[in-house]
């Protein structure tokens, strides 16, 4: 998957145009379908014991639960939109992502990555597992890596990197 160009629009901030292979398209869709992975949408609001902060936990949970529902709605629309991936040639597709879709997709991919990591027991990722992974752990690890791959591609595009000559 690589950025082809940033397509400017007269009406908005424009769109990112990506070239994506069939395998990458299938992996991206499969990774997105794992959303959501985390049991809770948020961490604690505070690590301290100030009383005025403790009351904000419910508000945080409510806000991020709402955000999660909104992500799910956008994701369903994205996945069911006909022509989202436009065939361009043998094994090649074109994916156009408006700028405003980049942020929620990054958030969704990161949620999947963090959720998989939590389900794996929050391991140190730089160390190898000292035992054989179960099939479920293998699935979680693969999904974690794939979400990181797609995050890196999208972030490179945001940063203007990876644009094809």
């Amino acid at each position: 998957m690589k950025l082809v160009r940033l397509q400017k629009s007269a009406h908005g901030a424009g769109s990112y145009v990506f070239q994506i292979s069939k395998n990458e398209m299938d992996w991206l869709v499969a990774t997105l379908r794992f959303f959501p992975q985390r049991e809770s949408p948020c961490y604690q609001l505070t690590r301290g014991d100030a009383k005025d902060l403790k009351g904000g936990q419910a508000l945080l949970e409510e806000a991020l639960s709402q955000q999660r529902r909104e992500h799910q709605r956008k994701l369903n629309k994205f996945l069911t939109s006909p022509g989202r991936f436009r065939p361009e040639g043998p094994d090649q597709f074109r994916l156009v992502l408006p700028v405003e879709q980049m942020e929620w997709m990054l958030q969704v991919l990161n949620e999947v990555r963090v959720g998989c990591w939590m389900k794996l027991g929050s391991p140190e990722l730089e160390k190898r597992f000292d035992r054989e992974l179960t099939p479920e752990e293998g699935r979680l690890m693969a999904t974690l890596e794939l979400s990181g791959f797609f995050q890196t591609v999208l972030l490179g595009a945001c940063d203007g990197k990876g644009e094809a000559a």
């Binding site: 961490y43 301290g48 806000a63 958030q107 990161n110 990555r113 963090v114």
Partner: peptide, 10 residues
């Protein structure tokens, strides 16, 4: 936290 970072206020 909406972006999945572990942030708190103190």
């Amino acid at each position: 936290q909406g972006y999945g970072l572990h942030a708190t206020m103190e």
